[in-house]
């Protein structure tokens, strides 16, 4: 249990993001919640690839005969970070346009399809 503390920390981030999504109505805060969930998942992916007493998988000035952590989760986390950035940019652009058209960022008020 206590050895799995990094996984638990990632789940705390995901839980905070879910709570933000459920309890807030501001569109910017919803974007912040989604970004929190993304951060939790990215940290979880990196933590999955950790090997005990491993060094980063880079041979430049690496300590001799050191174990290296798994490179594939790190590569996929890189992909995930870039895709999260793309979705965040799109969400913020939509929030800006919605605020310009409706004058409010409240998700409850802009739910009706009118105008």
């Amino acid at each position: 249990m206590i050895g799995n503390l990094p996984f638990v920390v990632c789940m705390i981030l995901v839980g905070l993001g879910l709570w933000t999504l459920l309890s807030r109505r501001n569109l910017i805060k919803l974007a912040i919640g989604i970004t929190l969930i993304e951060s939790g998942v990215n940290l979880f992916l990196v933590a999955l690839g950790y090997v005990e007493r491993g060094v980063a998988p880079i041979y430049t000035y690496a300590p001799p005969r050191a174990k290296m952590v798994l490179p594939t989760p790190q590569a996929l986390t890189l992909t995930s970070i870039v895709i999260g950035l793309a979705t965040t940019a799109l969400m913020l652009a939509f929030a800006v346009v919605i605020y310009r058209h409706r004058g409010t960022l409240d998700a409850r008020k802009i739910r009706e399809l009118r105008g």
């Binding site: 249990m1 050895g3 799995n4 503390l5 990094p6 996984f7 638990v8 990632c10 789940m11 995901v14 839980g15 879910l18 933590a47 999955l48 690839g49 950790y50 090997v51 005990e52 798994l70």
Partner: peptide, 19 residues
Amino acid sequence: LVVGLLFGAAAWMRPFGRP
């Protein structure tokens, strides 16, 4: 409930550092 399930899964996963 969902957060409790997440915590349980994280706590009873395979140990950290041994993939």
